[in-house]
């Protein structure tokens, strides 16, 4: 016997509630809107916040892309795609420019996003001040008063400890000159892609029950001290071993046969696309 699921798994009432929270999030860029996080057939902490956004927004005419740390083929990305396919029939793609709805964990694709596309980011920890202040009541008050000393203090502590800003990922950003926001654990390399993004960016935290957003053409500035500028990861002198790309976020890998390290695009579909476009030697 086959169970008949509602289109996109969630019932219509739940979708409406999530959409209402999403609209509010878009209206107040960077502000964390609480929502009633639903149970899903995957565990909380495995992208349920992003998935609920995707399920509440997906329509029959959408084209879906799901990536997990740059990979379209990871177990996690595949199982999310399967769930959505089973309950919607919406086709999935690896090509960033072909997708209308992109759910991603820990990366923003290398291909620049454009108007009309929607990027959903999975968020484990939405509160940028949590390490500084454990109480939710207090952090809400701090956001209300635009008191971000705590975010700056945490950066200061890192600089004292490591002599540089060591946030490899989730480096806090100021959105629309009002709310400090956790961009989710994307590398610093991806932070500038949020600034005046043409695509709508939605962020969902299932376990923490928060939705927030960066609407198109919104200013997003990475926090940085006057004398310690924000520095995204860079890979000077290195290019992708497979496709030769230079100005992309790369993984450092080790070839045990040749006993050397090499670099490779972290965004696998971008890399494949470049390789396919190159003439065969």
């Amino acid at each position: 016997m086959r169970i008949q699921y509602n289109f996109a798994f969630l019932d219509e009432g739940s979708k409406r509630e999530i959409r209402r929270a999403t609209l509010k999030a878009i209206a107040i860029p960077g502000y964390q809107v609480p929502f009633a996080s639903r149970e899903l057939p995957i565990g909380r902490g495995w992208g349920t916040g992003g998935l609920q956004l995707t399920l509440s927004l997906i329509g029959k005419s959408d084209v879906l892309k799901v990536i997990d740390q740059g990979s379209d083929e990871s177990v996690n990305a595949v199982s999310i795609k399967k769930l959505i396919d089973k309950t919607t029939g919406v086709p999935a793609t690896d090509a960033t420019e072909a997708a209308t709805l992109i759910q991603s964990r820990h990366r923003i694709p290398e291909v620049p996003l454009r108007t009309g596309q929607l990027l959903v980011l999975q968020v484990p920890m939405p509160e940028p001040l949590r390490m500084y202040e454990p109480s939710e009541l207090e952090t809400k008050r701090l956001h209300g008063e635009k008191d971000y000393s705590g975010a700056w203090l945490m950066l200061f502590e890192q600089i004292m400890k490591y002599r540089s800003v060591s946030t490899g990922a989730d480096h806090p950003v100021m959105v629309n000159d009002r709310y400090v926001m956790a961009p989710s654990p994307i590398p610093k390399f991806d932070n500038p892609k949020m600034n005046y993004s043409e695509a709508l960016i939605l962020l969902g935290a299932g376990r923490e029950k928060k939705i927030y957003a960066v609407p198109p053409y919104t200013q997003v500035v990475s926090l940085a001290f006057e004398d310690v500028p924000f520095e995204p990861e860079s890979f000077p002198g290195h290019s992708c071993r497979q496709c030769g790309a230079e100005d992309v976020f790369m993984d450092e890998l080790y070839d045990s046969e040749k006993e050397e390290t090499y670099y490779q695009c972290n965004d696998t579909s971008y890399c494949l696309q470049r390789m396919n476009a190159q003439p065969l030697v």
Binding site: S149, W152, L153, F156, E157, M160, E226, D227
Partner: peptide, 24 residues
Amino acid sequence: GFSSIGNIAEKMIAAGNRNVAAME
């Protein structure tokens, strides 16, 4: 649990200082 220098800097940060070298 924060460093001593961080504790002192917190008050300067709260007063708007954004220069690490000056605060240090």
